[in-house]
């Protein structure tokens, strides 16, 4: 905890789901920034801009797989292909629990794969654990 704000990029086309993530992470009193983008193309554009230094470089990407225009796996692939961004951990957060998506995500360099639970308590619990792990305990490399 060096006090530097942790920038999280949330790529999620469902505004309701984005709201859920936002509400859960709000409870962590850490200085972090949550950037929400609704499709894959916008995410790629943001990441491109961040590697050029024009926008904040995210410390963590929280990525849905099913996205308009460019889907999540492609976003992941292109992020990992960019040397300036490839060390950013990407956590998949999606409604799909298909095995092939899990396998494809890890193959492309995702560090974690989380399925959105169809249960309020469990979703909240998941986000709590996610917050503790990534925002309290986890250490990110310096940019």
């Amino acid at each position: 905890m060096d006090g530097r704000p942790i920038v999280i990029l949330l790529v999620e086309d469902d505004v309701a789901h984005a709201e859920i993530v936002r509400r859960n992470l709000e409870s962590f009193r850490v200085a972090n920034a949550l950037i929400h983008l609704p499709d894959g193309q916008q995410a790629l554009d943001y990441l491109e801009a961040s590697s050029a230094g024009t926008v904040s470089r995210p410390d963590l990407v929280l990525l849905d797989l099913r996205l308009p225009k460019v889907d999540g796996l492609e976003v992941l692939e292109r992020l990992k292909a960019n040397e300036a961004l490839s060390n950013i951990p990407v956590v998949i957060l999606t409604t799909s629990d298909a095995e092939r998506d899990v396998v494809a995500a890890y193959q492309r360099g995702a560090v974690s794969y989380l399925t959105k639970p169809v249960d309020f308590g469990k979703f909240v619990e998941l986000m709590e654990a996610f917050g503790f792990y990534w925002l309290v305990w986890n250490r990110f490399p310096s940019p």
Binding site: D14, I20, R66, T95, A98, F120, F123
Partner: peptide
């Protein structure tokens, strides 16, 4: 895949926001 994903999405929303 699409059906399961796209039908699950509103369901997740509904259950969570009911909470």
């Amino acid at each position: 895949y699409t059906v399961s994903h796209d039908l699950r999405s509103p369901l997740v929303t509904i259950k969570t926001f009911v909470g």
